[in-house]
């Protein structure tokens, strides 16, 4: 894939950070607002796709590395299953942090409230795990598709 025009690249430079931050916002507020780990991860993943398309697959290889993505993907998955296991004192997936006062442990206010981030127990942590998994999986997918496109182009030329 070739890189696109200077206009596209400049706009990408502008919006890239905003898209990534918006994605992380959706992940972090998953237990309060619509969205969550998967949706936020997909938003961050779309930023990677934007980078790949505007800078071309050869140049973007400098910032997007498949190896690191798959490492992060693994960490996300392991974090999720470990959170499941750590509730095992009572039941698998038991929300042991909820209402405990510590991390994400405040009791949720019933009724109209401004939205307390510090609630939800393990659910925000699971959202972060899923978000990490999905954004890196999206990275792997777009990179694989790009290398597949290169492969077919090379095959057609020869």
């Amino acid at each position: 894939m070739k890189e696109m025009s200077r206009i596209v690249k400049t706009v990408t430079n502008f919006v890239y950070g905003f898209i990534v931050i918006f994605g992380f916002y959706i992940i972090a507020h998953g237990h309060l607002t619509p969205g969550g780990g998967f949706q936020g991860g997909a938003v961050v993943g779309s930023a990677f796709a934007l980078l790949l398309v505007s800078y071309g697959s050869l140049n973007s290889g400098k910032f997007l590395k498949k190896d690191i993505f798959s490492l992060f993907e693994n960490f996300g998955l392991i974090l999720f299953i470990v959170l499941g296991f750590s509730g095992l004192g009572i039941t698998f997936f038991y929300n042991f942090l909820a209402n405990s006062g510590g991390w994400f442990g405040d009791a949720a206010v019933i009724g109209v409230n401004p939205g307390d981030m510090n609630t939800g127990g393990v659910i925000p942590l699971m959202n972060i795990a899923v978000g990490l998994e999905v954004l890196s999986a999206f990275g792997v997918i777009v990179l694989t598709m790009a290398s597949g496109a290169e492969f077919t182009k090379k095959k057609e030329r020869s």
């Binding site: 392991i78 299953i81 095992l88 039941t91 698998f92």
Partner: peptide
């Protein structure tokens, strides 16, 4: 008491550990 879930959860944990 947790045998039913452990049967599924242990291979699942291993599946995520294997690439690492």
């Amino acid at each position: 008491n947790h045998i039913p879930i452990l049967i599924v959860a242990i291979p699942l944990l291993a599946a995520f550990l294997v690439p690492l």
